[in-house]
């Protein structure tokens, strides 16, 4: 059952991911990206990380992608026109892609040899309590550094927006 669900949602994620690149219209690409986010959330859920899954949907699918779609709709971006690919891309594209995928597979095999299969419910650290405790004890410094980083980004956005207004 676990493996079946994993295969279904992993393939949805991969298909949607390929679709993001293949689609010519920005809105279609964005909708495919939402599909990727949603199936990733299901994969987190299968691993037993329900808090991360909910956060994935709320933050990525629910807020960030809505902003993406909002901006695309606001700019009223049309579909991009396809131009002919260069000779070099036609010649080397597919072989390079295969080589890249092979390299990735090799490294994954080398780095995580024979890692155990994860079953649903086996992992207990995914509840909101466990994530909160980990954030405020073990990972306190990275957590605070990230929040300062986000604060800097907000300040930067405010400064840029004010420059525009003057």
């Amino acid at each position: 059952m676990d493996v079946l669900l994993f295969l279904i949602f992993a393939s949805i994620a991969v298909v949607c991911g390929v679709n993001v690149v293949v689609q010519s219209h920005p809105i279609s690409s964005a909708v495919s990206l939402i599909g990727v986010m949603g199936s990733l959330a299901v994969l987190y859920l299968l691993l037993g990380a329900e808090f991360i899954a909910a956060a994935q949907v709320i933050v990525y699918a629910g807020a960030i992608m809505v902003l993406f779609i909002f901006v695309i709709m606001l700019l009223n971006a049309g579909g991009e026109t396809r131009r002919g690919r260069s000779f070099l891309a036609q010649l080397l594209g597919v072989p390079l892609l295969i080589a890249f995928l092979g390299l990735m597979a090799y490294f994954v095999q080398q780095l995580f040899p024979g890692s155990p299969v994860v079953h649903f419910g086996a992992f207990q650290g995914g509840t909101a309590q466990a994530v909160g405790r980990a954030l405020f004890t073990q990972f306190l410094l990275p957590f605070e550094v990230v929040s300062v980083l986000i604060l800097i980004a907000i300040l930067g956005a405010v400064v840029l927006a004010q420059k525009e207004m003057d």
Partner: peptide, 25 residues
């Protein structure tokens, strides 16, 4: 009775925005 019940409601309602936004576009 999900142990992330509140987050579930928030997540579902935030995805519901797409219905309206995409209908408009």
């Amino acid at each position: 009775d999900l142990n992330i019940g509140v987050l579930f409601v928030l997540a579902v309602s935030s995805v519901g925005v797409y219905g309206i936004a995409l209908a408009g576009w």
